[in-house]
Design a protein around this nucleic acid. Structure first.
Lengths: 204, 204
DNA sequence: GGGATTTTGGACCGGCAAGTCCAGACTGGG
DNA sequence: CCCAGTCTGGACTTGCCGGTCCAAAATCCC
């Protein structure tokens, strides 16, 4: 068991996860075999099971965690600094670009569908990702309120939840149709909704 | 080949599609075999291939179409009559209820992931569903404008696209986390956004 | 009612991919 | 330099599942 991992061991393990993530993004989980991953990462069957004793599911779960981390990282530093309209719009652009580049396979969506049933592991990863994402959006909205740029009456949690849902759906639709119109519409409408609440009260 | 289908034949075919849809909703496409479908529908292997000569993919595609039709049907008649705030709220309730009952497997999402690559068939089904759905939302919004309940300055297509994305994402998140908060937030915020635009101009 | 056609049953095949196993190579510490 | 532990290669096994096939039953049409 990988209780004690050598530096080399850790490197190999990381190589497997990253390579697997690549292949999965390209082919989708349904069409990816362990042999695909093995050949891409230049490893052997035994290594795969050495580092992931529970087999494919465990590896898939590790990839899911890897991808989940990437999602928020790729939005930084913008997501952490949503304190002006300009920063909101910069963030918007980053999100659109990131998902347009990603191609037509949602790593997390498909991974979840595959592993979903088998345990609470996958669910926990997605839930935690959504929680953090929404939290950062909510923080940005509260900053706007503090700066007098948005109404203090705004229901921040609900609005953040709605915006997150819009992004999520926009991405889903883009994966299915190849068109990013809905993602842009969700982001723009969400931000416009925030802006439209200003002017109510501007405590200096 | 199913050029000529007897009444009995048509019935069997329909039974297969409906039964397959059930099983797929329960188990997810990744864990459903033709034998599962065969046993659920009380049919034999040869029947499956008699009615769907191209095998599993063709059957899955038929199920996808079946489910896509259901999506809009289940929202009627409310979706077709979005002419007052009351009707919008009724529709909202129907949507939430429908997806809360559906359980934790998105038939279309997973079907798309499976068949997606193999051809434009699946993509076309999803694209067409989204188009019709958005069109009906847009029509409802225009009705509101005509009735002086929403601002004529509202960008109807964009707002409809954003609302659709919100629903889609809300459903996706609910599938992953088991929590319908985001779906409700998306619907409520979307409708609230519509309402907030009124009063601007009310041409009688 | 009889022949053509459709529908049905289920045994069978073949390939693929997950997982096992063991022998051998590397590594790191004493 | 040697031993214990880790890492690696790859052949092999195994079970599953999509797909094929043919013959028998039911059905339809004349």
């Amino acid at each position: 068991m990988p209780d004690a991992l050598t530096a080399k061991g850790r490197a190999t393990r990381a190589r497997i996860v990253e390579g697997a993530a690549e292949v999965l993004r390209e082919q989708g989980v349904a069409f990816t075999t362990l042999d695909d991953i093995r050949s891409r990462t230049g490893t052997s069957k035994s290594q795969l099971f050495h580092y992931f004793p529970d087999g494919k599911d465990e590896l898939l779960l590790a990839v899911a965690q890897f991808e989940a981390d990437r999602v928020l990282e790729d939005q930084q530093p913008h997501l952490g600094r949503l304190d002006s309209w300009e920063s909101w719009h910069q963030w918007r652009d980053v999100v659109v670009e990131r998902y347009e580049l990603q191609g037509d396979h949602c790593p997390l969506g498909s991974l979840f569908l595959q592993v979903g049933r088998s345990g609470p592991g996958a669910r926990a990863i997605v839930t935690e990702l959504m929680r953090q994402w929404q939290e950062q959006l909510a923080r940005g909205m509260r900053t706007l309120q503090e700066n007098g740029l948005a109404s203090p009456d705004l229901d921040v949690e609900r609005t953040a939840a709605a915006l997150l849902a819009g992004i999520q759906g926009g991405v889903t639709i883009m994966m299915s149709t190849g068109d990013s119109t809905h993602l842009r519409a969700a982001l723009d409408t969400g931000i416009a909704h925030l802006r439209s609440t200003k002017g109510a009260t501007a405590t200096a």
